[in-house]
Amino acid sequence: MMQFLRRRHAAAVLGMFAAFICLSPARAAAPDVVYFAGIAFTGDAAASEKAFPHLSRVLDTNGSSQVNASIRDQLKTHPAAFSVSFDQLGSIKDASHSVALALAVDRETTSVEHIGDTYKVRLEIAAQLLFFDFKEKQVLGGFPLILDYVDVRGAPPSEDDVLAGFRGMALGTSAHALPTEFVAMLAKASVPSAATRHLRVASVTLADKTRQYLSTTAPTIDADVLRTQIAQEFGKYLAANQKLAILPYSSNKAIGGSMAARFVEGEAYQLKIPEADYEISLDVAGFKKVDQGHNNVNSIFIYGSFVDATIREPLSNHVYFQQRIRQGATKEVPVTQTSVDDWAASYESLLLLFNNFTQAATNPASPWVKSALPDSPDAKAQLSSLAELIKSCR
């Protein structure tokens, strides 16, 4: 049995691993101190058991305490780039003492593929350093990181095996365990500045073709949980690639409550999302799997994602961008592999779409645009308009 625990760039091509994202947002006057609020799940707190079937068991009261204690202990020898407080309370009324930080867990993924006489098990945790300014009542931004765990074994993994894998990723002390990666990111991160204008993913819908694809490739996926994850993923890529402060998709009681508790006025404060100046709507139009051919060694497939994206100003209902975006990603499958996780590959292509689009949003000349957007004057004009909008939000 072979085991690997790795950190991975959120936009890696299928089957490839790289370093995690290092974000360098524009700086404003740095706060005197940032108040650590611990680890919590993003999304709807009531759906955490569906969204995080294994991590919700690992990060029970004791598990969360272990992560928090490990982070605190490691910061003693590997300090952050700014002052982090565990024991004192801040003040919502004081701008230099109003910023909270959480280790926000966005997603867990389990994938099992049968290759010859072995089983490849891949576990993934997507998380972020999430900063929130309670004086300005807005999310300042996040620094995303992804952990991969790969286990090659001679038999299918049991539920206990999968749970043990996630436990090691979340509570372990290895170089690439979640607390260690979080502390390493803190050494590089700076506190994002507050935006003067706010962008937010306001809605995510799944088209009929997407729901049909899910029913055959991933029937256990909860549609509501998936919509929340997609909104969060897009927001993270936009924040990281454009160095923006993005308002959250939805209010989260777990994160909001733990953050508010770090301030003297926290008990009376409810985490609320300010009105966005610009709203983003995403309709996941569908997925495709195309067989590109075979040889004596591999079969080659292309997984495609299609998203209808709209960015508008809600007050005037002016639309800055409204186009269908497409993305393909290639996956080579050994001829000895008898099962393929089509949903994992499809979701990877969707993340690649988000990464490429949010990079090209301020670079209309990007070669990627030619393959991803319609080749029309209208699409080009809208992308240029979107670029100006994003620049105005920095």
Rank of each mutant, 00 (worst) to 15 (best):
L59V: 07
R6G: 06
L373H: 00
S64H: 10
A80V: 11
H294Y: 12
V67Y: 08
E332L: 06
R167P: 08
F306T: 03
V333W: 01
R312S: 09
R227G: 09
G165T: 12
P144T: 09
L130A: 11
K288R: 10
T228L: 10
N356D: 08
I221K: 07
V225Q: 10
I221S: 11
L247M: 11
A175V: 12
D73I: 04
T61W: 06
T336W: 06
D222V: 11
L75M: 13
S376F: 01
K93F: 10
Y149P: 00
E265C: 12
E108A: 03
V112A: 07
K370H: 12
L89V: 03
P144A: 06
M185L: 14
E313G: 04
E348P: 02
R107W: 02
A100I: 00
G38L: 04
N241Q: 14
D222G: 11
A28W: 04
Q88E: 11
N317C: 09
L351R: 05
G168R: 04
V121L: 13
A285G: 06
I230W: 05
H9F: 13
A18E: 15
Y347P: 00
D160F: 07
D208S: 12
D277F: 06
S193D: 00
L145S: 08
K272Q: 15
F357H: 02
P367G: 13
K370E: 12
D342W: 04
R6L: 15
N68H: 08
Q382E: 15
M169V: 13
